[in-house]
Amino acid sequence: MAINGVLRPGHAVLRALDLDESVHFYTEVLGLQETGRDKSGRVYLKAWDERDHNSVVLRQADRAGLDCFGFKVLNDATLNTLEGRLREYGVSTERVPAGDMLETGERVRFQIPTGHLIELYAQKTSVGNGLGDLNPEAWAPNQKGISPLRMDHALIYGGDIDGNRRLFEDVLEFTLVERVKLEDGTTDLATWLTCSNKAHDIAMVRHHEDAKLHHVSFMLETWESVLRAADIMSMNRVSIDMGPTRHGITRGTTIYFFDPSGNRLETFSGGYQWYPDQNPITWTWDEVGRAIYYHDRKLNPAFLSVVT
């Protein structure tokens, strides 16, 4: 399979209640690298193995949450095509000029039915992962904290997740990978969608308030490194929500925890690879506990109610 439309999640712009405290947390504890600060004070970060200049942007604000979630697309032609398709579909789009975000080209920004702002862009400066492209070493020696490989996906909460799914499927060519049904057996409580070969690139849960963030997730290499991440969280008294454990959905091993502004993050490893000939997996309401937390086999109250 070729991945040639939307490539992957490219940036999460997160709000911080206390920017200095957050930058310290994201660099020293989570172990991202700071790659720049812009005139408006936003701080740019990347995970060590990411090539592009940034994948997490922190903005000082008076409330927590997600400003927008961006996806990188193959090239400028793809960006133009997708923008055209969005408009045809009835979605109004806005072009944010190149350079508004550091080292980032023009972004096509639009609102999805759950109220979240999504961005597509084709250009972001490649700063490399520090290993070079010729005969590289296996990993970068100068890592701090948890040090995930990359920002991987987000789980968002809002009302019209059916509208979201149709938009992502029909316009952006995402595919449904897994879903959880409500008690009625027909309504989706949640869906997991992929634009690539991953088990999910974005997921969404039905919720009474729009534009909410459940978590932004970072990928680790092994289950061992998930345990090590939990150790680092305890050493730094990080607020942990759940884990280490495993999700039934996607089969990833996971920890949910909170940044200093109360935004939930995840560090995970594993899960399966998805191919376009796979049928979607359905979970029923009576098994939702095992679907979300495979070992506890029940939801914690925070899963459905604690969002930013």
Partner: peptide, 12 residues
């Protein structure tokens, strides 16, 4: 006791 984020963001 419904503990949320413990960091002033979620409001619970």
């Amino acid at each position: 006791i419904p503990v949320g984020c413990r960091n002033g963001g979620c409001g619970v």
